[in-house]
Each structure stands twice: as C-alpha cells, then as structure tokens.
C-alpha cells in the first residue's frame, strides 16, 4: 500500500479514460499526456492503460508500506527515495517503509508515476480517471489517503533508462484548420500561424488558455452548441484561443478555428503558464462527400433550431 504524505498542488488518478460515453454528456478524461502514462506503465510491466498518478507541478510525497516497483515519466522533476535522488524514465525498486518524494518540474507540468500492478480503485464507466469538469471518478489525492497497489501481471522489461526527448522551450503545435475556420477573418488565420501565444495560469486539465493576438471573427452569430474534440482550439469572444485537453466539455458554444494534431496533444498538456507556443497551421484535406437532398417527412414534429442556448457561449445548462 501507499500512504500519501503530501499531495502536491493537484495529484489525480488517471488511466486512458472512458471514451464512448460522449452521447451521455461524459467526456473521455484520462491522462492529459497519454504517451507519458503509457510509458510509465510499460516501464513497470503493466498494461499501458493501468491506473497511475498524474502529478501537476510535482510536490507529491509517498510512503511505501511494502516493497514495490515504480516508474516516473512526463515532466522531469527530482525523484528521491529516502532522500537519495533517482532516475526518471526507469523502473525503480522501492523497499518497504521508504519515502518517495517528487520535486517541482523545471520543464513541463505533468509527471506520471506508475506502480507495478497498477492502482486499485473503483471504476466509473470502466475507468479510474478523475474528470475535474464533470466530477466523475475518484477525488483528487489528499494527504492521508491510502492507495492500494494491484497484483502484478507479466514481467518488468529489462531496460535501464529509456531515452526521451526533452520538452522544448518553445512549443510548436501542428494544427489543421476547421471546423469553423470560416467564422474568422483571414487576418485571424494568418495571426494564428504567425504569432506567438502564451499559456496563462488559468490553464488546467480542461484546457490550456492562451494569451496573445486576438483572433477576430467575421461571423458574429451565436454558434449553437456542438460537439468538441480533444485538441480543439476554441476561440472565446475576447479572441483568445483555448486548447482543449482531456477533461474538455463534450459540447461547446464557441467556434473552433483549428484542431491540434493527435501526436502534439501531449506537448500541449505540458505547456507551463508563461511558456510561449506557436502553431504550425495546415489546411485540412477537403472532405469530398457532401450530401444534398430534400429531407422526407418522418411524422416526428419538426423542431426549429434554438436561436441561442447560451448567451455566454459557454455550455451552461
């Protein structure tokens, strides 16, 4: 078992989330930086999607009540076992009774700690992930909590330390424009590709909020709420973009100017407040299929569109 001596600013249990429930209003959630969670699990011989800890700005201290094998990945921070500094990106054998401490990362935001056997906790819709937006899954980890480690399966792979690329100082995220790029001025699209944005302290697991050039709209209509994807770059009425992360709302009422490449979402999830980010903007390959036909009557009462559901644009019921 693991005793939590100090929780740090925000430590949650995460796995690969609960995809497939968006039609119920439930988002995917799960690790904000999925490749790092997968790697941490692989290092200790777990299935990639086992539940592990996601640390936000480090600060976690644990006591292992039994011998265990752990691995830390993601944002680099100091890892100390009984005061002695250890490697990240490697499996560590931790003796019973030892204290494990994680410092504050110097780059990036989120560090992942996997335990051989995974963490045992109650699943909600098949996942142990904490969704901070819809309050599903376990509560964030608190001082005094006791976490249970599951029974290990398979063997620990024989690697010393895996080489990983260091998180860059200036992040460039590849995006494709759409689905609502046509709601913006040509200038806004140009600015999205040319200017530097800065991540703000209001960023969280829901999204990375950016400051910088204001992206002006040509279409000032109210957008009826529509489905949102992870990586969507949604632009709020003040012209500032938000990059949606794991706990993003299922639907949203602001137009999405572009969507981050799936392989760059982990980089977005490691953006620190104050860090600068640029976008490498590509046009999407056009969808050739467009259907045009007169809909037939089905006997179901025809329902007009709501002119507006949310004057604030945010999806608020």
């Amino acid at each position: 078992m693991i005793e939590v001596l100090r929780s740090g600013p925000l430590t949650t249990i995460q796995d690969l989330g609960r995809p497939g429930f968006a039609h119920l209003g439930v988002g995917r959630s799960g690790a904000a930086d999925r490749p790092s969670l997968r790697l941490a699990n692989r290092l200790v011989g777990n299935p990639e999607g086992s539940s592990a800890l996601e640390l936000t700005f480090g600060g976690l201290a644990l006591r292992a009540t039994e011998p265990m094998t752990i691995a830390a990945t993601g944002a680099r921070c100091t890892v100390r076992v009984d005061g002695r500094e250890q490697d990240m990106f490697a499996a560590l054998s931790v003796p019973a009774g030892s204290t494990i401490e994680f410092g504050m990362p110097s780059r990036g935001v989120r560090t992942y700690v996997a335990f051989r056997g995974g963490l045992e906790c109650e699943l909600v819709l098949g996942s142990a992930a904490t969704d901070v937006l819809s309050h599903l899954g376990p509560e964030p980890v608190r001082e005094g909590d006791v976490l249970k480690v599951g029974a290990p399966e398979g063997s620990v792979p024989a690697v010393d330390v895996v080489p990983v690329r260091q998180l860059p100082d200036e992040v460039v995220l590849r995006v494709v424009t759409g689905p609502r790029a046509d709601w913006f001025t040509p200038d806004a699209l140009d600015l999205l590709g040319r200017s530097r944005f800065e991540a703000t302290p209001a960023s969280d697991r829901i999204g990375v909020r950016l400051d910088g050039a204001e992206l002006q709209r040509t279409c000032l209509d109210e957008l009826p709420s529509e489905g949102m994807v992870e990586g969507a770059v949604q632009v709020t009425p003040d012209g500032h973009p938000v990059i949606f992360l794991a706990d993003h709302p299922v639907t949203g009422g602001y137009p999405v100017i572009a969507v981050v490449h799936p392989d760059d979402i982990a980089l977005a999830a490691q953006l620190r407040p104050g860090q600068s980010v640029r976008f490498d903007v590509r046009a999407p390959i056009p969808v050739t299929h467009a259907v045009s036909a007169e809909p037939a009557s089905t006997g179901v009462p025809r329902i007009p569109f709501p002119a507006t559901l949310s004057p604030t644009g945010q999806e608020v019921g």
Partner: peptide, 19 residues
C-alpha cells in the same frame, strides 16, 4: 448535410435540422 473536417480523428456533420 455538410461534412466539416475536425482534426485527424473527427468529422463534424452539419445537418439539415435537429430532426
């Protein structure tokens, strides 16, 4: 119905109406 590209793993289908 119009199909709007939404990143690499999604399509947003604009429909005729709610029905």
């Amino acid at each position: 119905r119009t199909l709007l590209p939404t990143g690499h793993n999604a399509l947003l289908v604009e429909c005729f109406d709610l029905e």
